[in-house]
Amino acid sequence: MLLTFDTASPTVSVALHDGEDVVVELVSGLAMKHGEQLAPLIEQAMVQAGIVRQDLTAIGVGVGPGPFTGLRVGLVTARTLGFVLEIPVYGVCSLDVLAAEAAVRLEGRDFVVATDARRKEVYLASYDAEGARLAGPVVDKPATLATDLPVIGEGGTLYPSDFPGHTGATRPSAGWLARVVTDELAELCDPEPMYLRRPDAEPPRAPKKVS
């Protein structure tokens, strides 16, 4: 049984896939609070599927890009669970998850995935009609990345003038993440976070004068 989750958006999404199809998919009730919601959702998913932890054979996790705090909750959970249960952990770019779902729907057109990177920027990657990633992900101002192509994800709805082809605010789904892993719909990677930004930190200036 494959356990998957994504925490690279304001939502926590958890799913179980039995090799044939997704058997349970749960989405958090509250926005954010990934640290509080992820573990109980995993437990709930296992209860609903009627499985115990020893039934898990692999883990798939969204590696972002996305807000760092939530992203790390997903990654440290995946790595630690994988370590304890001695099962492999696969990373998937969270934009690829949105792309895999969208490719089925859009049929035959290139498109981009854009999500909210805060600070008036978006995370963006571009895809061909089959949902294979062509470029990205990058983080930048919407105006710099503006396009007329169909745009999947919240980045489009947040900045409609830069992304007139926006198609609705979807967030990465763990069910589709599971399909990406089982059907190899995108390249799998190590469970390393895609931060795309350096930490905000500057070496200190000389101490302020006090007299």
């Binding site: 992820l38 995993i42 932890r53 909750v73 959970t77 630690t80």
Partner: peptide, 13 residues
């Protein structure tokens, strides 16, 4: 948050 999430994963696992 990183420590708490790791601890929960241990407890679950």
């Amino acid at each position: 948050l990183v420590g708490v999430a790791a601890a929960k994963a241990l407890a679950l696992g």
